[in-house]
C-alpha cells in the first residue's frame, strides 16, 4: 500500500490546471504518464525511484473511484477537492448546487457510525 503516493497523485493533479484537464478527459492515459514522469519528480534535476501504486490504487485512480480511495485512507481533503474540481460543474448543471458533494456523501453512508479508515501516512 502506498497511501503517500496516492496522496501525491491527488495533490499534484489538484494544483495544476493542465494535469486536471488531462486527468478529467482521459484518466487511463494520464495515470500512466503520471506514474512514468510526474509522480517520480522531486525537482527539475532529481527523480525518486522508491514509490509505486498497487494495482488497486492504480485502478481506483483510473476509475475516479473516490469511494475506494476513501476506503484506502487517501486524505479526505485531497480526495474531495480534486473530484469537486472534476464533477462539481457538470453535476450542478444537471442537478443543482452541491449535487456532487451529496452523491459523494451518499456513496459513503455505510461508514456512518464507524471509525473511518486512517489517513495517517
Amino acid at each position: 500500500m502506498s497511501k503517500y503516493y496516492v496522496n501525491k497523485f491527488l495533490f499534484t493533479v489538484d494544483r495544476d490546471p493542465e494535469y486536471l484537464k488531462r486527468y478529467t478527459e482521459d484518466p487511463h492515459t494520464f495515470v500512466a504518464i503520471w506514474e512514468q514522469s510526474i509522480g517520480p519528480r522531486l525537482s527539475d534535476a532529481e527523480m525518486s525511484t522508491v514509490n509505486g501504486f498497487t494495482p488497486q490504487e492504480r485502478n481506483a485512480l483510473i476509475n475516479h473511484d473516490y469511494v475506494a480511495l476513501f476506503e484506502m485512507g487517501a486524505h479526505f481533503f485531497l480526495n474531495l477537492t480534486l473530484f469537486i474540481g472534476i464533477y462539481d460543474e457538470p453535476y450542478m448543471e444537471k442537478s443543482g448546487p452541491l449535487a456532487f458533494q451529496k452523491e459523494f456523501a451518499a456513496k459513503l453512508q455505510h461508514w456512518v457510525g464507524k471509525d473511518y479508515p486512517s489517513v495517517a501516512t
Partner: peptide, 9 residues
Amino acid sequence: ELGGPRQFM
C-alpha cells in the same frame, strides 16, 4: 466533515 459520509448536510 469533508470527503466523508456526513459532509454537506
